[in-house]
């Protein structure tokens, strides 16, 4: 049996000695869309940043594998070149570095050789058109002075240009008005193919009306407490996270009794 496209295996993550992610496991096959839904403070962004290799987060258990290869020892740039992508919840601004220079560097890095100017231009213009982004946009500095919606569109622009095999979308829907949400979602759908997989990390289910998940997981206190199909998101929309939080507390208490 071949290895899954992306596997998170009993992952444990700590920040400043506080355990945030606790034995989280998840498997993504090519062509799948998974959604991880969780309330504030459940560890969503910690998970996203850890998968990409942010130095602030310490993995103290488990593994992350892309096509069977462990990513734990790889720095972020090697993870990206291997085919992993993170759309940031809060993309960092890099003043003085133009988007166009940045995008060309990133595309060249992803393919392992300098991309010819002509090809870069063509691809860029095509994706800009799909996302309804003005060409002047890429003359600006990376995320510098961008509105919330512009930042998210810029992330999707990068997704479309870099063509990763696994895309983690961290709260991509937050801060978007309804039109921007539609455009961003269409960008994700245009990217999605049978060859890649998407992990949507979100608080609200509204983006799931546009990007249909195959699997939905509920993240409470750093662990997945329930998994299901798209119907689970609808249950969350109706009932909120509270029933799951109560359930989780109940389980923790039982665990505590067992270990006591």
């Amino acid at each position: 049996m071949t290895a899954p496209l992306f596997a998170i295996d009993a992952l444990r993550v700590a920040v400043d000695d506080i355990q945030i992610v606790k034995d989280l496991s998840l498997t993504l096959q090519p062509g799948e869309v998974h959604a991880i839904m969780g309330p504030n403070g459940s560890g969503k962004s910690t998970l996203a940043n850890t998968l990409m290799g942010h130095p602030r987060y310490t993995v103290n258990g488990g593994d992350i594998r892309l096509k069977g290869q462990s990513l734990l020892e790889l720095p972020p740039d090697e993870r990206a070149r291997a085919g992993l992508f993170l759309a940031f919840q809060y993309p960092t601004d890099v003043p003085g570095v133009s988007m166009i220079n940045f995008l060309r560097r990133a595309m060249s890095a992803r393919r392992g050789e300098e991309i010819p100017v002509r090809e870069f231009r063509q691809t860029l213009n095509q994706v800009l058109g799909e996302l309804q982004i003005d060409e002047q946009f890429v003359r600006r500095y990376v995320n510098d002075g961008f509105s919330g919606g512009e930042k998210k569109r810029a992330e999707i622009l990068q997704l479309g240009l870099l063509q990763p095999e696994v895309a983690i979308m961290d709260e991509t829907d937050s801060g978007l008005d309804i039109d921007a949400l539609r455009i961003v979602s269409e960008g994700i759908n245009a990217f999605h193919s049978e060859g890649n997989a998407i992990l949507l990390i979100t608080h609200y289910q509204r983006i799931l009306h546009y990007v249909q998940p195959d699997h939905v997981h509920v993240l409470i206190d750093g662990a997945i407490v329930e998994s299901g199909d798209a119907g689970l998101a609808e249950r969350l929309e109706k009932d909120g996270y509270e029933p799951f939080q109560t359930l989780n507390q109940e389980r923790s208490r039982q665990k505590g009794l067992v270990t006591a």
């Binding site: 990409m52 972020p76 740039d77 070149r81 003085g96 570095v97 220079n101 940045f102 990133a106 990376v142």
Partner: peptide, 30 residues
């Protein structure tokens, strides 16, 4: 140098040395 800026550039596949060069160049660009 901002660790977040370096992380952002690296998350797009840009090696650390080039990322640092871009951040420093960008810092002086204005």
């Amino acid at each position: 140098v901002s660790a977040d800026q370096l992380f952002y550039l690296q998350s797009r596949g840009i090696p650390p040395a080039i990322a640092e060069r871009m951040v420093v160049r960008g810092f002086l660009a204005e």
